[in-house]
Simulated assay, not measured.
Amino acid sequence: MSTAFDDLLAANEDYVREFRLAGLAPIAARGLAVVTCMDSRIEPLDMLGLKPGDAKILRNAGARVTDDTLRTLVLAVYLLGVDRVMVLPHTKCRMASVSSDNEVHEIIAEEYGVDTRSLEFHTNNDQVGALRHDLERIRHHPLLPADLPVIGAVYDVDTGRISLVEE
């Protein structure tokens, strides 16, 4: 029986033959958590000189620090060896190209007939302002260590360069 996932299942068979990550510890070997976007142009390990097991990678639309991201960071800090956090949105992000969640709801309703108003997308066309806000959410979260190093940068999808965002 053929499915829409046959290509992926076949690729996994190839992956299994070359698999070399057995026994890798579940902690972040380099103590890093990276919050970044789900955009497929982003390769967090490669762009930061990391390898599997070095970092915890948290991905969502827009690289936003949501309540779920904070929950995951708390677990990563206390149970998975994370002792520093980088928040890394990117240029040309669809979530930063709209003015509000309402605009996204309207686009989806008009183009697909789906009412998404029950969801919060955390859009913000002031990407640097949103990044600074998200950094503060981490720095002031009562369950995260007050001295947890947190940094923000923007990844350029056209050059591969990350640029730090000054506080």
Rank of each mutant, 00 (worst) to 15 (best):
V85A: 10
V85N: 12
M86R: 12
M86F: 12
M86K: 12
V87Q: 05
V87K: 05
L88C: 14
L88W: 10
L88R: 12
L88T: 13
P89M: 06
P89L: 06
H90M: 05
H90W: 03
H90D: 03
H90F: 00
H90G: 04
H90L: 04
T91S: 14
T91I: 09
T91H: 11
T91N: 11
T91E: 07
K92L: 04
K92S: 07
C93R: 12
C93I: 08
C93H: 10
C93Q: 06
C93K: 12
R94Q: 03
R94N: 04
M95I: 10
M95N: 05
M95F: 08
M95G: 01
M95W: 07
M95K: 02
M95S: 06
A96I: 00
A96K: 00
A96C: 01
A96W: 00
S97G: 13
S97W: 00
S97Q: 12
V98S: 02
V98K: 05
V98P: 02
S99F: 03
S99I: 01
S99R: 15
S99D: 09
S100G: 08
S100F: 08
S100Q: 10
D101W: 02
D101N: 08
D101M: 00
D101L: 02
N102I: 03
N102W: 06
N102Q: 14
E103Q: 15
E103D: 09
E103M: 11
E103H: 09
E103V: 14
E103C: 04
V104I: 15
H105E: 07
H105S: 06
E106D: 15
E106F: 03
E106G: 06
E106T: 15
E106I: 07
E106Q: 14
I107W: 08
I107S: 06
I108L: 13
I108S: 06
I108Q: 05
A109D: 10
A109S: 14
A109V: 06
A109M: 14
A109W: 14
A109K: 15
E110F: 01
E110A: 14
E111M: 10
E111C: 06
E111H: 08
E111D: 11
E111Q: 13
E111S: 13
E111N: 10
Y112W: 13
Y112K: 12
Y112P: 01
Y112V: 05
G113S: 12
G113N: 13
G113P: 13
G113Q: 12
V114S: 06
V114Q: 07
V114R: 11
V114P: 05
D115F: 02
D115R: 04
D115M: 03
D115Q: 02
D115Y: 00
D115N: 13
T116R: 09
T116Y: 07
R117K: 13
R117D: 04
R117L: 05
S118E: 12
S118R: 15
L119T: 01
L119A: 08
E120L: 12
E120T: 15
E120F: 08
E120V: 15
F121V: 01
F121C: 00
F121W: 10
H122T: 03
H122A: 09
H122P: 00
H122G: 00
H122C: 05
T123H: 04
N125W: 06
N125Y: 07
N125V: 02
D126L: 03
D126C: 03
Q127P: 01
Q127N: 06
V128A: 04
V128F: 00
V128Y: 01
G129I: 09
G129N: 11
G129F: 08
G129D: 10
G129P: 09
G129W: 08
